[in-house]
Amino acid sequence: MGRVTERRKVIRIRDGVISTRPDTLVAEEPLEIRLNGKPLAITMRTPGDDFALAAGFLVSEGVLGEAHELQNIVYCAGATGGGTSRSSGAESGGGSNTYNIVDVKTAPGVVIPDITLERNVYTTSSCGLCGKASLDAVRTTARWAIDDGEAAPVRLQPELLASLPDRLRASQRVFDRTGGLHAAALFTEDGELLDIREDVGRHNAVDKLVGRALQNGALPLSRTILLVSGRASFELAQKAVMAGIPVLAAVSAPSSLAVDLAAESDLTLVGFLRGASMNVYAGEHRIALRTAAAHG
């Protein structure tokens, strides 16, 4: 895979003392996602897990929902003069990835939603597909209704949620070297860490998580908790809904549209998850809330 970090010279000023030193920066490169040979979107991402990113992106688009619907993913090396392509199995191999175009091929018979076919957009690492979707679009393309299955309903203790940001931070290996990456982590309802991905864009980190789950045949991600660094945008709420994730927690604020989508989709949305404090914006039935009388 490509380099996750790069080195650059920096002039450092500390207490009036000037020095020159190398600094480790997070890498950012464009990735063009093609669908069955046709350009679909370009996103700025941190190289690595590119196939999972593309697969997860197409889950959020309503194109993919099960592993058998994905025929293969290849790097389009010919775009850089190589004239060859590499299959999805080659992503984890050695060597430097110079390919910034991937082509996702769906299995025969997979129907592509109109919302995907009608759009060819550039996405940024900071905000993702800004203004792309509406609440109605998510309703019409979601594969699964968010539910807790046949077992007892998910019931999370606030103390468990409060412990997750520290566990997320402790697992951010690249962030420790650069200070410049977002992260998304998937936990079980008991707080077990299932997976964590980092990227310059938090929406890319979520796509990498969801894409891995698709490749492993693990969708929908029922009875899980998605924790993201930063804010909870509409797009992140959309990705959670499209993957069947019942709980989305963020260390910063949600947007108004994210709260609206969560309320309409039965998604539990928690924001400002910092220390023992948090705000529950929707889906409070999955949180073991204490009544005011219990504190009296």
Rank of each mutant, 00 (worst) to 15 (best):
S125N: 14
S171C: 14
K208Q: 15
G244T: 00
A185Q: 05
E159A: 14
G271A: 13
L53C: 03
A41T: 11
A184I: 06
A27M: 11
G16Y: 02
A145G: 12
D15C: 01
D49R: 11
T116H: 08
L53M: 10
R231K: 13
S171K: 12
S277R: 14
S126H: 14
F187P: 07
H295C: 10
R119S: 15
G128L: 09
R286W: 00
L209I: 13
G81V: 04
L194K: 07
S265H: 02
V241A: 03
E198T: 02
V270Y: 04
L261W: 00
R223C: 02
S92D: 15
D15A: 14
H203K: 08
E198I: 04
E69C: 08
E69L: 10
L168C: 15
I225Q: 02
L40F: 10
A162S: 14
G95A: 09
T188C: 07
H182D: 08
L209W: 01
G211V: 02
D260I: 00
P220C: 00
L31Q: 01
E159N: 11
K9I: 13
E192L: 12
T24F: 04
A142Y: 08
A258R: 01
E61R: 09
E192Y: 08
T141N: 10
G149E: 09
S85N: 07
V4G: 09
S171N: 14
R173L: 13
A41N: 05
E284K: 12
G48M: 03
L53F: 06
R202C: 12
D176A: 15
M1A: 13
L181N: 12
L129C: 09
A41M: 12
N36A: 04
P254S: 13
T20F: 09
D190Q: 13
E69G: 08
D190W: 08
D190L: 14
P254R: 06
V10I: 12
V63A: 07
T24S: 02
S265Q: 15
F187I: 05
R286L: 01
T84E: 13
N36T: 03
R12A: 11
E32T: 15
G95S: 09
L181A: 14
A55D: 06
D49L: 07
S87V: 14
Q172W: 03
A55Q: 08
R7N: 09
R290T: 08
L226S: 01
Q71A: 13
A145K: 14
I73E: 03
G82S: 08
L35H: 00
D195G: 07
S229K: 01
V280T: 11
G93P: 01
D148A: 04
D176N: 13
A213V: 05
V206Q: 05
L135C: 08
V121N: 13
L25D: 11
I18D: 06
A152Y: 08
L35V: 03
G244I: 00
I112Q: 09
S96Y: 15
I42A: 06
L194S: 04
V138A: 10
D147I: 06
E29M: 12
V200W: 00
M44N: 10
L129P: 12
L70S: 07
A67Q: 10
L248V: 06
T98G: 11
L58D: 00
V102K: 00
A249D: 07
A184E: 03
E69Q: 15
I73M: 03
Q215C: 11
A263P: 01
A240W: 11
M1S: 10
R167Q: 15
A77F: 08
L269Q: 05
Q71L: 10
A90K: 04
R8E: 12
E189K: 09
S171L: 05
A77Q: 08
G56F: 01
G2R: 11
